[in-house]
Every structure is written in structure tokens, then in C-alpha cells.
Design a binder for these strands. Structure first.
Lengths: 228, 228
DNA sequence: GTCTATAGTCGGATAGAC
DNA sequence: GTCTATCCGACTATAGAC
């Protein structure tokens, strides 16, 4: 967790709330909703057990609050590239180079967020669990960020390839390209193991980004295979 | 699930054991180790609660047995393509077309197994949870299948690109290519949502495979970007 | 708003009959 | 090998003092 407290409310209530949410993201991400106990949640947040029913109505309310917090957090880190990409997409006659530039910027930012999470703040476990058993919290996450990342990438790739944006094929293509990044998060244990790494350092993330650019360039270059 | 139980004991013990393992894969995959209760495990398997400590020494033993069962099962479904790929890789002067053919065969088989799981047998939740919190069971899964899939793909791609196989770059590249498939399993909820699908039918899986081939061909074609 | 103490529930494992 | 009954520990939530 990085930022300073956003809202310093009346007394210590807001502080407790916030602390509890940030801890809850870690704990729920690590153990899952059922296995995470209110004792662990309260203990790690350094607050009293009874604060959970008091502030959030119960364990489930805290869970929802955590999902909302993640959506807001990632959204804020993506906002700048979202705006760049939106601007380029709105201009009817954006050049190929410009389309590629914002696509790379979008994927780079996404890769940084996705790969570096869990070396400090750990929302990814939370998100992965919601992928496995989508519930109320999945809606909050999907509507907030996932949809926009997918949508923007698909629009950019469609323009670059000159193919229709709303086809299933284009959506599949876009999902696959995002999968090239997400593998390092969702299959992190296997990826690190395979690479003989213990964790992702900055230069390793740069390698990932470099290979990604190479492969995205190849895909949108529309080179007919083995034309050589 | 296909394979027979490894150790068929005296009476109905083997049947109970097997049933318990297959159910356990579903239940652990759905709820996770901690949240899955022995009562649920026994009930869904239609066996007595006390059978779990009896046959597996406890909940943890059943979990390990389930991991081994998954590794064996996937291994057996991949065996044929593993052998094909191994043969091609051993022949020093395998042509480009042949290398591509076995790479596609490998990825196709992998895609089928990965995407169709969970419409019947559900080992993917189990595997994903081990990715999040790698434990004893992760070793069983990694050593068994993951390592071979990654290794074979990397070897084939390295040959096709004429790049060294053991470099981090090649491993990253291979992981990314596999990520194109795995996104449909690990990010299934978001993918289905984005595509407006409820589930993966045969023709949808064919679409995924077709796009994957296209993109793999583009990547290994070594086309310099924007040469056009 | 925060704490301690406790009520009420459900978990895993075992004992011992069959 | 399989069952029923039971123990004991851990969990969530609440009551009520401060």
C-alpha cells in the first residue's frame, strides 16, 4: 500500500475503516473469503474484532468494501493511459504509429500494475478468487476496470488490423494478448519456477515488456505466416 | 476422469478411495483447502466421514492424493503429443514445417484440455489455488506436467526462431504464448463475460485455436514489425 | 467508538460397535 | 472397511461495560 490516507474523518473511525480494508485485501487474497477469519483480519489490521461488524455490518460487508477499493485503486493508476488512448481513438484519422504507441503504453502500464502487484500490495489473489467463483464482488471489479482495459485494447487492435471491433474473433484476439501479460500474475508460481527467479525485479519486468512489444508488433503487423 | 486407482485394495476400499479423490478435486477446487469441509467431501462422494482419516490419514492426505491424480490424468492426455514433439526435436534436421506442425499440435491439445476442463471434470480450480499459494501439491503438479509443456514449447519455438533455448528471453516468450491459452481458464469469468458467452462450446474452442495459430505463426514468422 | 467476555455454531478427528 | 456418536477446538457475532 502506498498512498497517504485519503479521508481523515471525524475521529479514528475512518482510519480504522481504511486500515481494515487494506488488510482485508491481503488476507482475503491469501486465504479466500471463507478461510479468512475475522480474528486474522482484525489482528493484522491492529483493530478490535468487533470493529468489523460495527463498520461493515459483518465479514461480507468488509469483503465488498475491499473489492470497491481495488477497483478504485487500479482505475486511478490506469486513468492517464485510458485518457490518452481515448483521445487517439476519438480522432478519426490517427496514424498507425500513434495507434501502436498508445497500445504499447496501455499494455506497459497494465503489465507494470499486474506484475508488480503482490510485491507490496496484494490485490491479485483477491481478483483471482473472484474469477474462480464470481460473486457480487466480481461485478464491481469487472465493471470498473477489466471492461475498460479489454475494450480499449480491442478498439486499438481492431484499428491496427482493419478488422471489425465487435466480432468474437477480435475479442478472442485481445483476450489472448492480455493473457500474455496475465500469465505472469495468474501463473506466477509456475513462471517464476520456470525462470529460476524468486521475484520480479525492475529489469525482469522490462524484459517481459520488451518481449511483449515484440510479439504484439508481430501480431498486428499482419504478416502472412511463413512468407519470410 | 479416466485412470484406474493405483492401488486396488482388498474389498470396496479402492472404489471409495477413487470416488473420494475425484470428488475432492471438485470440492477443493471450488472452495479451497481450508474452506472445504470433510463433511462436504464425504457427503458429495457418498461415503462416510470417517473414511477420510481412514484412507488418507486426514484432509491433507486426501489433498495430496488429489494433486497426484490430476498430474497423472493430464500427463496421460498429453502423452501422445509429448512423444510426437520429442521425436521431432530429437531429429537434428527437422524442417520448419514439421516443427510448426508439432508446436500447433501441442498447443491445440493443451488448449483443449485447459479450456474444456470445468465442463465436467474440474481440476483447474485446484491448480489455480496452488499457483496462488504454492505448497506441497504444487511440486507434484509442476514436476509432472507444467515443466514438460513449457520445456517442449520453448524448445520448438527456439528452433523455429533460431534463438537459444535456455535464455530467459525464450522462456518469457514461451510463457507468454502459453498465457494466450491460459487466459481462457484462469481469467475465464472475465473472458466469458467479455464475449457474452455462458460457456465454451466446441466451435468456440475452435475459434480460440484458430486465432492462437494465427498469432503463433505471426510470432515465429520473425516478421520485422511495420515492414509491411 | 472501542473493548472484554461469552453465546451459539460448526469444523476435524477419534472411539468403538458392527 | 464402514458406521454412529462424541470430543474438543475454532469460528462469527453479540451484549454490555467503559
Amino acid at each position: 500500500m502506498s498512498g497517504a490516507a485519503a479521508a481523515p474523518p471525524s475521529r479514528r473511525g475512518g482510519e480504522t475503516r481504511r486500515h481494515l480494508i487494506e488488510t482485508a485485501i491481503d488476507v482475503f487474497g491469501e486465504y479466500g473469503f471463507e478461510a479468512a477469519t475475522t480474528r486474522t483480519l482484525a489482528e493484522r489490521a491492529g483493530v478490535n474484532l468487533a470493529a468489523i461488524p460495527y463498520h461493515f455490518g459483518g465479514k461480507a460487508g468488509l469483503y465488498r468494501a475491499a473489492a470497491q477499493y481495488i477497483a478504485d485503486h487500479v482505475e486511478s493508476r490506469m486513468r492517464s493511459v485510458f485518457e490518452q488512448a481515448g483521445a487517439v481513438l476519438r480522432s478519426e484519422r490517427a496514424g498507425r504509429a500513434e495507434l501502436l504507441r498508445v497500445l504499447h503504453a496501455l499494455l506497459d502500464t497494465f503489465a507494470t500494475i499486474v506484475v508488480t502487484s503482490n510485491e507490496g500490495d496484494n490485490w491479485s489473489g483477491f481478483v483471482m478468487r473472484e474469477q474462480m467463483r464470481p460473486g457480487e464482488a466480481f461485478e464491481i471489479l469487472y465493471q470498473g476496470v477489466m471492461q475498460r482495459v479489454h475494450g480499449m485494447c480491442a478498439a486499438l487492435i481492431a484499428r491496427l488490423l482493419g478488422e471489425p471491433e465487435e466480432d468474437a474473433k477480435m475479442k478472442v484476439r485481445t483476450l489472448m494478448i492480455l493473457g500474455q501479460i496475465l500469465i505472469f500474475r495468474m501463473g506466477r508460481a509456475a513462471a517464476l519456477r520456470r525462470l529460476g527467479w524468486k521475484r520480479f525485479t525492475d529489469d525482469r519486468i522490462d524484459l517481459v515488456k520488451a518481449v511483449m512489444r515484440e510479439q504484439v508488433d508481430a501480431i498486428v503487423a499482419r504478416a502472412t505466416p511463413q512468407q519470410s
